[in-house]
Amino acid sequence: MSLLADLFTILAVSAGVFFFFAGTVGLLRFPDTLTRLHALTKADNLGLGLVVLGLLPQLGSVLAGLKLVFIWVLVQIASAGASQLLAGLAKRQPEETREEAP
């Protein structure tokens, strides 16, 4: 049972790390703000979700697990909101004048 749990943790966390890696590559390589945001939210969303999922069987108490899930939910809300704001800013301001605006 413990072996199974460990195996699950390794698989899920590795998959999470893969999504973080992919998200970072996308952030660095994608051509414009919107596609970069898309890559970034994948890392926040799937990457962190899988890492949290993988860590769940390693925790001693249900409360600790709930806290982790809760952190993931908060990151979801924050990153979705922040991405919307950044995307709105990118839409309002053309690429070249962005640095000058307040």
Partner: peptide, 15 residues
């Protein structure tokens, strides 16, 4: 203000 900001300002403060 953008709707996303208003949404955040409504959802996050209780947390």
């Amino acid at each position: 203000p953008s709707p996303a900001l208003v949404f955040l300002a409504r959802v996050l403060p209780p947390f």
